[in-house]
C-alpha cells in the first residue's frame, strides 16, 4: 500500500514536471530570438539612415569634416560587428556589438549637436525629415532593447530556477547574456533644438 503511494507520488511529480516545463524553455527561447531580431532590425534601420544624413549634412557650407568622418567610420565599423541570435550566450561577442553600436550612437549624437550651429540645416526640409526619422529610430531601438532585456530576463529566470533548471539540464540551455542599461548605446542622442 505504501509503496503504491510512493509510486503514485513519483508519477504525479513527473507528470506535473512535464506539464509545467516541457515547452517553457523553447517558447521563451523563441521569444528572445524574436526580440533580438527586432533589435537588429532597428539598428539596421539606423545604419540605413546614415548615408542620407551624411549627404544632406555635407551639403551645408563648411560643415565640420572631422565629425562627419567619425560617423562614417563608426558606421563602417558597426557594419562589420554583427551578432547573431545564437551568439547571445557569448559575453565577448555581445560586448563587442554593444561597443560598436555605442560608438556609432555617440558620434551620431555629436553630429546632431554640431548641426545645431548651422542655420541653413535647420531650414532644410530634408534635414528636418531625417532628424525626425533618426529620433524615431533611436526611440525604436530603446523600445526593442527594453523588450529584449525583458525577454532575456524571463528566459534566464526560467533556466536558473526550479523546475526550469531541470529542463535546462536536459536541453543543455544556458543563461543568455543580457544588455546592461548603462551602456552608451542605450542613450539616444540629444537632438532637440
Amino acid at each position: 500500500m505504501s509503496t503504491r503511494n510512493i509510486v503514485l507520488i513519483v508519477l504525479t511529480v513527473i507528470v506535473v514536471l512535464f506539464l509545467t516545463g516541457i515547452n517553457t524553455i523553447p517558447t521563451q527561447d523563441q521569444k528572445v530570438q524574436a526580440a533580438w531580431s527586432q533589435v537588429e532590425n532597428d539598428y539596421q534601420r539606423r545604419m540605413d539612415l546614415i548615408p542620407n544624413l551624411v549627404e544632406t549634412v555635407k551639403g551645408a557650407a563648411n560643415f565640420e569634416k572631422s565629425t562627419l568622418t567619425d560617423v562614417i567610420e563608426a558606421r563602417a565599423n558597426a557594419t562589420k560587428v554583427t551578432l547573431s541570435a545564437d551568439q547571445l550566450s557569448n559575453p565577448e561577442a555581445v560586448k563587442q556589438f554593444e561597443q560598436a553600436q555605442g560608438t556609432l550612437s555617440s558620434t551620431l549624437s555629436r553630429l546632431m549637436m554640431v548641426s545645431e550651429r548651422y542655420p541653413e540645416l535647420k531650414a532644410n526640409a530634408s534635414f528636418l525629415a531625417l532628424q525626425s526619422q533618426l529620433e524615431g529610430t533611436e526611440n525604436r531601438i530603446t523600445v526593442s532593447r527594453r523588450d529584449f532585456i525583458g525577454a532575456v530576463q524571463e528566459y534566464n529566470t526560467t533556466v536558473t530556477t526550479f523546475p526550469g533548471r531541470l529542463w535546462a539540464m536536459i536541453y543543455g540551455a544556458k543563461p543568455k547574456q543580457n544588455f546592461t542599461a548603462t551602456e552608451g548605446a542605450d542613450k539616444a542622442p540629444v537632438v532637440k533644438f
Partner: peptide, 8 residues
C-alpha cells in the same frame, strides 16, 4: 502593439 514609431 507598438514599437516606438512616431514623433514627439
Amino acid at each position: 502593439s507598438f514599437g516606438g514609431g512616431g514623433a514627439s
